[in-house]
Design a protein around this nucleic acid. Structure first.
Lengths: 297, 297
DNA sequence: TGTCTATTACTCGATGTGAGTATTAATAAT
DNA sequence: ATTATTAATACTCACATCGAGTAATAGACA
């Protein structure tokens, strides 16, 4: 009745710095913090993961949620390895770097996901041609490609990060194994990661993009106080789209998500902005408080 | 590097019959279909689960998605057991019963979740008093109870099924272990299930309630064709609320989710209703097509 | 012919959303 | 001091959607 399995936990730790979403890796590698779940000293899996990250990267995680459990046979040649992936969000200000942790730009992993300066050129130049070849005259493939990549009049759905990654993987455009460095491989798009770690990051980005509009997770990535401009930049970085400033401010203020502190700060050369903080009471007032991206409904 | 673990897969198989959401159990028990993940004959975990359900309950699952991985130490006294739970949706018409599978009414498990005939009496009569005692004068507990159960002016959020179950578990109102029959236990609310299976069902119900409004999952529970009335009843059963008929039809028709077949059927004694079918093209047209419940935004 | 059931049509106000434009406040350079 | 710069703040407006209510209609059955 007892089975032998290789059981691991992986951490997708995201933060936003310099208007770029980034994921923590172990220094010198393109691997996520991960470890075997071997001893039973932790009461819950989540606590085991927190301990693991503390030991490997030297930080105490705040927000943590379970992402997905990966267990396909193809993942390892000798027997099945089960990996339970977790998503963590950390404030860029508190995030360590250097000997303990390195940070990898998410849009180097998924260049097609950043639409902040318009549609990424890689889509029409590299992805679409390869996808079209793969489609051939299959109606099923046609529909799938149209939906996941917003072709043939379908809208681009920012939250389908994972769908797109999985499709590109099937098509053979993204590599998963046999790559230890963070280099780009010929014939492949984006920077690869060890094993299926890039797929885990895609899962995490999908999750958080979807969650942005109905849970106030964004504040996990910001300090206690922040300007509305900073808040908008962080949302834009994660969502991968530019937002209309007046509407964003209206949404977030009138929506009761933030409250001003009265204090003004910021020495960016222009007019100092007021500092805001997350308004916790919104949780009691609205069923699904989030920042609401365009066409995300 | 290799760890010994007890690894299992569980299936939360939902369907709606007679306007009641129900979950499949093994006949004579209050246990979900489940099994050890021991051999590596399946390429993916999901395939392993499908085979397991086929062997145990004799049905081939259609829609399947991974739910959550449970691995808290408290689950088993001797070493950790990891359970990967999956959610499956089956058409009530195709669902088997009898020797192979039994069906358990979800609202017997969670009587407080069915608001179709108004607020369930159990909430004010049993839950709230116990919750209030548990809160005491802790502001943290106060906030949590208010949000999860819609107290002190907070709205009731249908999708928080799991939050409510977990809170009731902490408070001691729902039992998890040592109960093999489906009977109600003194001092406890709702029908218990084996081990943490009821928690898995709560997770599944939470997931599908949340998903209703942005993914057309509801059609997995219906036959190829159906009347709008049937569709509404199934949505109401899952969501646990009554819906405004004219608005529902407008939403679902003008939203492009269904299309008429021209065929009229139904011999319920009144005017025959037109049969509709799911309109697949909506997937290409809208980013997040769903049935949109009231205040679900 | 009447009754029942359920479909179908219409209205109306409140709210939210996307988009655009204008104004103001403070800092830094000249 | 004055001006340019940067960004915050304020306002408008059309449009779609939503919640809620009311009314009319079509067919089956007794």
């Amino acid at each position: 009745m007892t089975a032998l399995h290789h059981l691991r936990a992986n951490a997708v730790i995201l933060s936003v710095a310099d208007e770029q979403p980034r994921v923590m890796t172990l220094p010198g590698t393109s691997a996520l913090p991960a470890g075997d779940l071997v001893d039973d000293q932790d009461a819950t899996l989540e606590l085991a993961l927190r301990r693991l990250v503390r030991e490997q990267a030297g930080i105490d995680l705040g927000y943590v949620e379970q992402l997905y459990t990966f267990g396909d046979q193809a993942r390892s040649p000798t027997g099945r390895t089960i990996s339970i992936a977790y998503l963590a969000l950390v404030d860029a200000g508190l995030a360590p770097a250097g000997r303990e942790a390195a940070w990898l730009d998410c849009y180097q992993l998924f260049p097609w996901e950043d639409w902040r300066s318009g549609k990424p050129e890689i889509i029409d130049q590299e992805l679409v041609p390869a996808l079209e070849r793969w489609v051939g005259d299959s109606a099923l493939r046609r529909e799938r490609v149209d939906i996941t990549f917003g072709l043939s009049g379908s809208p681009w759905d920012g939250a389908r990060v994972l769908d797109r990654y999985e499709l590109l993987y099937e098509v053979g455009l993204v590599a998963e194994k046999g790559v230890d460095s963070g280099e780009t491989v010929a014939g492949q798009v984006g920077v690869a990661m060890v094993s299926d770690h890039r797929r885990m990051v895609a899962t995490g980005l999908s999750r958080i993009r979807g969650k942005l509009s109905y849970r106030p997770v964004i504040f996990e990535l910001l300090s206690e106080t922040f300007t509305l401009h900073q808040l908008q930049r962080v949302v834009e970085a994660l969502a991968g789209v530019r937002l209309h400033k007046p509407n964003f401010r209206r949404l977030v203020e009138r929506g009761g998500l933030v409250e001003g502190t009265g204090v003004a700060e910021q020495k960016t050369g222009g007019r100092p902005a007021e500092l805001f903080r997350f308004r916790r009471e919104v949780l009691r007032e609205r069923p699904a408080p989030g920042v609401g991206l365009p066409s995300a409904r």
